[in-house]
């Protein structure tokens, strides 16, 4: 695979910031624009950048988990957080908010909807990863032809 130096360097700079932005959107999502879906999309876009720069191997290096695992954890997490309030005799998907006092660091606002959002983010990132793997995998029936064509030039 032919690599572009400029792209490589730019992706190396941008990847972590983009991933962080995704996390930021995930955590800020409850009261401001953002949330699990958008956060997951941005993090997924960061992964897609790695894919453009270095192919599927580099994506695997950046996120060494199977797409199925991410999807499963995400779905279980989101639906689990929807069911738990039912067990406590509350409504489906009901969420609670509160504040934790961290001494000198001040108070932190939390909301249990975050668990749901994290689940959604996992599902989105898992889907992205699955897509990249599906397109990036060397198909056994095609052999290595795509990669060979590119290096041949």
């Amino acid at each position: 695979m032919r690599r572009s130096l400029i792209l490589d360097v730019v992706v190396r700079v941008v990847f972590h910031s983009a991933f962080l932005l995704g996390l930021f959107l995930l955590f800020t999502g409850h009261n401001r624009p953002g949330g699990g879906f958008v956060g997951g999309l941005v993090a997924g876009a960061a992964l897609a950048l790695r894919y453009v720069a270095g192919g599927i191997d580099e994506v695997r290096e950046a996120l060494p988990v199977r797409a199925w695992t991410l999807l499963g954890i995400g779905l279980a997490c989101a639906t689990g957080s929807a069911i738990v309030p039912l067990l406590a005799g509350r409504e489906l998907l009901e969420h609670f908010k509160g504040e934790v006092h961290l001494g000198p660091m001040g108070a932190a606002h939390y909301n249990t909807a975050l668990v749901f959002d994290i689940g959604v983010a996992f599902v989105v990132v898992g889907m992205t990863l699955m897509l990249l793997v599906a397109f990036g995998e060397r198909l056994p029936s095609l052999g290595n032809s795509w990669a060979r064509q590119e290096t041949g030039r």
Binding site: L75, A76, T79, G80, I83
Partner: peptide, 10 residues
């Protein structure tokens, strides 16, 4: 079923 779907993947 959705929870089951998640667990089933795991």
């Amino acid at each position: 079923p959705l929870l089951g779907a998640g667990v089933s993947i795991l």
